[in-house]
Write a protein that binds this DNA or RNA. Structure first.
Lengths: 207, 207
DNA sequence: GCAAAAGTGTTTATGTTACACCCATGA
DNA sequence: TCATGGGTGTAACATAAACACTTTTGC
């Protein structure tokens, strides 16, 4: 049971898609970076086990969690293991808050999803596969809002899409696309800043 | 390790999407219909194990095979089992040929995919999920050709799509859609019948 | 010639992309 | 009032759906 966990972190060139890795504390691949994982409890269903695994690494609740794939190549490891992998999105504000507080777990580090170090087992392959799935899913669903706080402006959401997809989007077309769906609801609050205040939106819980 | 295997069978109202079930020979759910399955060999990768499971039930090679999902709810069975499920497409001509020969396996029976009997464990749920995936995938890929022999007319292929999707498609638009892709290649052979001969096509192996 | 399926062309609707332009605010 | 991001409008283009029409065969 492993998890590929995505969140956003601010960088000089804009937000970057990042994921947490843990340093292995035992053989094989001792000391090598790997996806966070754990063992499946006999009386626990798969989604719960994925949540628990994720909580043990980040101490946070995911805003999105989905099974990715089950890997089981014989050469994955000296002792062959079937690995059920989940992927998840975390609200970036919660991750940031936790990192500045005392609760940051040991030997966990965040890496740029597009620039990972060599990982244990076939975890590079798994992480790439998860990234493909995320990018694909972002193309046809509004899932990326799960990386943002409860309320956000359309520009903030667009920047998330740009960070995930790796390309610029037209602001006006992006707005129209999302206003046409019922997955986003406008609030009466505005984000005030340097320029014209921007309306805040929130995710529609009913869909 | 279980498999949801789809093929087509002729019926009075046109081709129907069917899948094979096996009668359970032991408790729990003795005598109840279930998806074909088997146990994962320790030195076998998942795709191979799925192929083997499928061969044990149908004695045939699938024209398409893909992992569906891994199920593991605690209440799936008295003794909880993690079940890695694959789904597959079989060429209908091979299935028909085998059924009329001696090779038809015992206690295997084909059922209409939209009208299944009550199944053991959560297999009804799994079969429905596989059907959703098939119908969804047919919408954006040319995968359904895997249900037909090597060579087929566009009308035959359209009827496959109609059987899978459960609705009629416009013949001329269907033709244009498929001629625009490179997943189908025209041959110089024609199917002669009551009316104007129809050109035969085959799947493009290179894509 | 007629019926029926094969195959072509055209029109309409719909959605996507590009981009010009106005609006509201802080400085 | 100017710079800038927020927000609206619209024309161009691509894709899909609907359907009229021509072609080729068996009988």
């Amino acid at each position: 049971m492993s998890a590929v966990i995505f969140s956003l972190r601010s960088a000089p060139e804009g937000d970057r898609l990042m994921l947490p890795l843990v340093r292995r504390t035992r053989d094989p691949h001792l000391g090598v970076w790997a996806l966070p994982g754990g063992w499946l409890d006999p009386d626990e269903d798969l989604d719960s086990a994925a949540s628990r695994t994720l909580a043990e690494t980040t101490a946070l609740m995911p805003s999105y969690l989905e099974q990715l794939y089950t890997f089981g190549a014989v050469d994955r490891s000296p002792t062959r293991v079937v690995s059920i992998v989940y992927w998840a999105l975390l609200r970036s504000d919660l991750v940031d808050a936790q990192r500045s507080s005392a609760g940051a777990p040991e030997n966990v580090e965040w890496f740029d999803a597009d620039d990972l170090p060599p990982l244990a087992f076939d975890h590079n392959h798994i992480a790439d596969y998860a990234l493909d799935r995320l990018r694909n899913k972002v193309g046809y669903s509004r899932i990326a809002a799960g990386l943002l706080p409860d309320e956000f402006t359309l520009t903030e959401l667009r920047e998330v899409y740009e960070a995930v997809l790796g390309r610029r989007l037209d602001p006006s077309n992006f707005r129209r696309l999302l206003e046409g769906t019922d997955e986003l609801v406008p609030t009466e609050r505005f984000r005030t800043g340097k320029h014209r205040p921007a309306r805040l939106y929130r995710r529609n819980r009913d869909t």
